[in-house]
Amino acid sequence: GVRVRALYDYDGQEQDELSFKAGDELTKLGEEDEQGWCRGRLDSGQLGLYPANYVEAI
């Protein structure tokens, strides 16, 4: 996976979405899909989806 850092807070709206705060680091686990979602893993171990444009590569 690729380490990325959140640029903005994001509150997951669905069960399969991650929630994070600006500045949090997570691991991107795949390329974004056509809707702009990426699969990732928080350092807590939680897996889920997040909007790709909310993070930057570290």
Rank of each mutant, 00 (worst) to 15 (best):
G1H: 15
G1K: 15
G1I: 14
V2Q: 09
V2W: 09
R3V: 04
R3P: 03
V4M: 11
R5S: 05
R5E: 03
R5K: 12
A6L: 00
Y8A: 11
Y8F: 10
D9Y: 00
D9T: 12
Y10K: 03
Y10N: 04
Y10Q: 05
Y10H: 15
G12L: 02
G12R: 08
Q13W: 04
Q13V: 09
E14Y: 10
Q15L: 10
D16P: 06
D16K: 11
D16R: 09
E17I: 12
E17V: 14
E17R: 14
E17W: 10
L18C: 01
S19G: 05
F20K: 00
F20I: 05
K21H: 14
A22I: 09
A22D: 06
A22M: 10
G23R: 05
G23C: 05
G23E: 05
G23I: 02
G23A: 05
L26Q: 02
L26N: 02
T27M: 05
T27S: 11
T27L: 12
K28L: 08
G30L: 05
E31A: 09
E31N: 10
E32R: 13
E32L: 08
D33F: 06
D33R: 07
E34W: 11
Q35Y: 14
G36I: 00
G36K: 06
G36Q: 06
G36R: 04
W37V: 09
W37L: 12
C38P: 02
C38K: 02
R39V: 08
R39Q: 14
R39C: 12
R39N: 08
G40Q: 02
G40Y: 00
R41P: 01
L42C: 10
L42F: 03
D43M: 10
D43G: 10
S44A: 08
S44Q: 09
S44F: 02
G45N: 09
Q46N: 09
Q46H: 13
Q46D: 08
L47D: 15
G48K: 01
G48I: 02
G48S: 00
L49P: 03
Y50P: 00
Y50F: 13
Y50T: 03
P51M: 10
A52I: 09
N53G: 06
Y54Q: 12
Y54E: 01
Y54P: 01
V55S: 06
V55F: 07
V55D: 02
E56L: 04
A57E: 15
I58Y: 07
I58C: 07
